Amino acid sequence: MSGVIFCLPGSPRSSIFPQLIKYTGLDIEVKNPSDACFAENFPLKKCPAYKQNDGFKLTETLAILKYLVDQVPGKYNWFGKTKQDEAKVWQWLSFINSEYVNALCDWALPAFGIIPYDKDKIDRGLAVLEKLTSLLEDQLQKTKYLVGDEATLADIYAIQSVKVSYGNLWEESWVKEHPGIARWVEQMKKDPVVGEDLKDLKPAAKAVLGQ
């Protein structure tokens, strides 16, 4: 199996794939969506998008994740040990990919000037993000990782979004009030898939809130 995956730099829905491909050794080239063949093959122009050399194409983050990790089932504890674990992994993947990323973008895009500044949008995003983050904290107060005592695909995908808020929004005082997330982040720094990318991650010196 060989192919190419188009990833949007900086996107929490794309950033897992270069790390995943490096760890697994899959024969997949990572390309930027500015590449001419991207629009030809994917008219919606949404990332990530995967094209195999035999012509097989796949879009949507979770579908691509499932397909790729299924190629290397014994390489990592992707889905836990039981069917209940697997169901929980998919629960967290869906939660992060939809609700969490959407709230993250409502704050980050105007706060970083990627779209025009909109204080109301930022405030709404922050309010939802805080509520959703409390669910992560509650879970990580109960379990070492999101699904039990070992990291799964849920953790290595969730950290792609959490690292954005951790390094740009959550200051040291906030982190101290969320010991579950703080411990989990430190654990993920040792993870063989994503640890290298997280080694310099620190709480925000000052929250990025735009103008």
Rank of each mutant, 00 (worst) to 15 (best):
E150C: 12
K131H: 11
L209K: 14
L109M: 15
G80E: 03
V193E: 03
V164H: 03
K45N: 12
H178R: 15
N41D: 02
N32R: 05
S161E: 14
G3N: 00
E196S: 14
Q71K: 15
D27I: 11
D155L: 14
G80H: 06
F95T: 06
L93D: 04
C7S: 05
C105S: 12
D138W: 02
L198H: 10
D118G: 00
K22V: 00
L93A: 06
P33F: 04
M188L: 15
Y117M: 08
K46G: 05
G113P: 13
V194C: 08
D120A: 15
N168P: 03
K57M: 15
N41S: 10
Q19A: 06
P179V: 15
W90L: 00
I156D: 01
G74S: 10
G180S: 14
K131D: 04
F6C: 05
L140G: 12
K142A: 02
L198E: 08
G25Y: 09
P33Q: 11
L201N: 07
L153M: 14
P110N: 07
Y166T: 01
G3S: 01
C105Q: 12
L20P: 08
Q141W: 00
G148P: 07
S134F: 10
A49F: 03
K83D: 11
D191A: 02
A63N: 13
Y100F: 15
W90A: 01
A103D: 09
S2C: 14
K190H: 14
P116T: 11
S165I: 11
Q160Y: 04
M188P: 08
L58M: 10
F17M: 08
F38S: 08
D138V: 06
C47K: 00
W107Y: 11
L146T: 13
F79T: 06
Y50P: 07
L153Q: 08
I115Y: 02
P192Q: 13
C37A: 09
D155K: 13
Y67I: 14
N77T: 14
L140R: 10
D120P: 03
Q71T: 12
A158H: 05
A205I: 02
Y67M: 11
F6I: 05
L109K: 12
S34W: 07
Y145M: 10
S2Y: 15
P43M: 14
D118V: 03
V30A: 09
L198K: 10
L65K: 00
N41I: 03
F38H: 11
K144E: 10
D155C: 14
C105T: 11
D155V: 13
A151G: 13
P73R: 09
D85G: 00
S14L: 02
A49M: 04
P179L: 13
V30Q: 12
V164F: 01
M188I: 11
K45L: 08
D118R: 00
D197C: 05
P73A: 09
V128I: 03
G3M: 05
K51S: 01
D191W: 06
E172F: 00
S173H: 13
A151W: 12
A151T: 12
